[in-house]
Design a protein around this nucleic acid. Structure first.
Lengths: 214, 214
DNA sequence: ATATTTTTGTGCATATTATAACATATTTAT
DNA sequence: ATAAATATGTTATAATATGCACAAAAATAT
């Protein structure tokens, strides 16, 4: 039976990976899988897989394993992929445009409604049939158009200001690409994508072996 | 004194954040900081900060704290930011272009040498003064131009093939934006940026509160 | 000069996370 | 039908990671 305890972030961050591997199994017409076999593909221990899944329900069957389609659907539901989110992007520079054009986006239920920028050269251009609006219109836009998700792709200097406007208008989830930590109330979720941190980690690991042994 | 034990990934992933906050202190002309004060800014406990830093050396002084510039430089060195890496990007689509134009890139020592794509519409265009080459030239390019880092920005179907070519030519670090796990030998470091996983995590957390309590 | 305050580095306790072990249920083979 | 094999859910154990507490050192105040 599903546990009622708080799920740890470690577990949550593994869920998308389960979802991805299950999708792959589906495309290969594999309709059942054991934790052991999934373990060999995904690289987690079978025990961890079973324990992770058991946080949410008894999806498997002893002696059989897991039904791939059912489990895929269940995890999709757990991840909220059956929901739809009205989404905006603020910042139409390189990253903003890449995110806007990111096709997987809509499949996950994130529906891009508007894009904002303050650069006059970008205001007016169309990205995926959406005309970039001046960021001065952000406040009035949000006042008139209830929005679920805000994506921040502006330079770090403006990130907090943009976040404040989003929060003011009831946005409950922020996907933050600005290389800074933004402050929001407890009921607002911020998911950061800090590219430079990722790159620094790569840099560290490249040098790791020779750090002490020379 | 610095410990010789293996540093955990948890610690490593916090280092860039220390680096970022110290940079901010520097721009504000703050030249010393205690673990307690840094703790209040960065949101980790003071104890954790001291313990993290002590993995690498005794950078602080009792009764004084840490010298901001020294610590910033030390962490930079630990992260390998004083090194230079010859870098290529394979895949000049939205993400590839965004990464290529990502300015912080060069500052961290990653020098973009070449960009490849297989789309004839992209081959030949210039991104940051670098002409996009046909991906068919990747093999011969790498044979002639020793390269440290490969950035994979191709669709998932081609990611493993690109990675194999990179590995064959001695690339030791891969920054992977393709939404798949690539297999490489043990001595090659892969750092993944899985945007859809990040987005799914955001989606989960948005729904988390109502999962069980309704 | 001395006392007080600050603050580190580190040992220890606690909490969290991951793995192993196993009883139980189901499937498959004979 | 019965036995053997498979594979879950769950409990027990091990491994990691975090936080607390304090002696020792340096800075600051008196």
């Amino acid at each position: 039976m599903a546990k009622e305890t708080k799920i740890s972030m470690a577990v949550i961050r593994r869920l998308p990976k389960y979802h991805r591997y299950l999708a792959e199994l589906l495309t290969n017409d594999i309709d059942r899988i054991s934790s052991k076999e999934l373990s060999e593909r995904i690289g987690f221990t079978a025990s961890q897989i079973r324990q992770d899944l058991n946080c949410f329900g008894d999806f498997g069957q002893q002696g059989y394993g897991y039904n791939v389609r059912d489990l895929y659907n269940e995890i999709g539901k757990i991840l909220g992929l059956d929901k739809n989110y009205k989404t905006i992007i603020v910042g139409a520079g390189n990253i903003g445009q890449a995110v806007a054009n990111y096709s997987k986006f809509e499949k996950l239920g994130f529906h891009l409604q508007a894009i904002f920028d303050k650069n006059p050269k970008l205001v007016g251009i169309r990205i995926r049939d959406i005309e970039v609006k001046d960021v001065d219109c952000l406040n009035s836009y949000l006042a008139q158009n209830p929005t679920d998700i805000g994506i921040i792709c502006v330079p770090k200097e403006h990130a907090q200001m943009v976040a404040d406007i989003m929060v003011k208008h009831g946005i409950k989830g922020i996907w933050n690409f600005a290389p800074t930590d933004i402050k929001v109330p407890d009921d607002v979720i911020v998911e950061n994508v800090h590219l430079s941190e990722s790159l620094m980690t790569l840099s560290y690991r490249l040098n790791e072996s020779n750090l002490f042994n020379e």
